[in-house]
């Protein structure tokens, strides 16, 4: 029986963004990551092109794993005190990228100096050949002092730096332009805010093709579905030709898992939910899969077991 043709054709494509530079490209990375390039809704091989599967970054923090939940920490006990060893381990675990969080620079922590942060960046670049995402503190003044030093320290490595926000994008944009890095643009849960921010960044000289967007992130069962829909709306606009939303999407999941009771509550406390050892990484990988369903291309996780699970699942799903 002749089934009607329901294929959808779009005029727009998601930008391809490459992070990392090998020696040929003037850097020292042993691999690079390219995300984006899709020409349709997620994972529909019968109608669109999907040149790159989603990439996964593992998070490492200059402040260590204080406050991370136990099921995640148990994998990190040996390396959490040494950024270099931690980064190298992430590479071993199969991460495509490292997400270095400069938490120690936060005033609530030790308020680590810009120069020390730049040294941290250098240390990680030396310890691993993976491309790097560097994440500031979300405190504007601190980021404005710290990030320029760090972009400089990583000059030539084509990293992704974040986050640039509506209230604080000039300094980070200027330093990324000066040192040739990509910009992570963060606007909370609303595609119009994202568009606005991309315009602001473009107006100070950042190419639309050099941005990755972060619509902020909630874990599965903890606001995920609102962001899922935000991403879907953005994707529809992007594929219909809106160049201000054609940036690939990042979600930062690892951080959010510690808030989810179903993921962190030990089996003695909640026996009805079964094995805690299974639940903790599975909640992280299930949150990751949820976002891939809506269009996310770059996912930041914390738990290496969640990374393995999510990558295996994506392999079986990706066209």
């Amino acid at each position: 029986m002749a089934v009607p043709d329901v294929k959808e054709n779009f005029s727009g494509t998601i930008n391809e963004v490459t992070i990392g530079a090998t020696s040929e490209e003037g850097g020292t990375r042993t691999s690079t990551v390219t995300i984006g390039g899709e020409t349709g809704y997620p994972m529909l091989g019968f109608e669109a092109e999907y040149p790159h599967p989603p990439a996964f970054a593992l998070e490492i923090s200059t402040a260590g794993v204080e406050g991370w939940h136990d099921e995640c920490r148990k994998h990190l006990a040996d390396v959490a005190g040494d950024l270099g060893a931690w980064a190298a381990k992430c590479e071993e675990w199969g991460a495509d990228m490292i997400c270095l969080c400069l938490d120690a620079a936060h005033p609530d922590n030790e308020g680590r100096s810009p120069q020390q942060c730049a040294d941290d960046v250098k240390r990680v670049l030396e310890a691993t050949g993976l491309p790097l995402l560097v994440w500031g503190t979300d405190v504007d003044e601190v980021d404005n002092n710290v990030l320029p030093k760090c972009t400089q320290a990583a000059a030539g490595e084509n990293c992704l730096f974040g986050t640039a926000k509506e209230d604080n994008y000039r300094t980070i944009a200027a330093s990324c332009l000066a040192d040739n890095h990509k910009v992570l643009a963060e606007a909370p849960s609303d595609i119009n805010l994202s568009k606005q921010l991309h315009i602001l960044l473009r107006d100070v000289g950042v190419d639309l093709a050099d941005m990755v967007m972060h619509p902020t992130t909630g874990a599965l069962g903890f606001g995920m579905v609102y962001i899922y829909t935000t991403i879907e709306r953005g994707r529809i606009a992007a594929l219909s030709g809106d160049r201000l939303l054609q940036q690939p999407v990042l979600v930062n999941i690892g951080k959010e898992i510690g808030r989810v009771k179903e993921a962190v509550s030990p089996a003695q406390a909640d026996p009805q939910w079964g094995s805690h050892e299974v639940r903790a990484p599975l909640w992280e990988s299930a949150s990751a899969i949820s976002y891939v369903e809506s269009g996310a291309e770059l996912l930041v996780l914390r738990n290496p077991e969640a990374l393995r699970q999510a990558k295996t699942a994506i392999e079986s799903m990706w066209p």
């Binding site: 599975l282 295996t312 699942a313």
Partner: peptide
């Protein structure tokens, strides 16, 4: 684990 993730899918 794959069962769980595919079911979500």
């Amino acid at each position: 684990v794959a069962q769980s993730l595919q079911a979500c899918h």
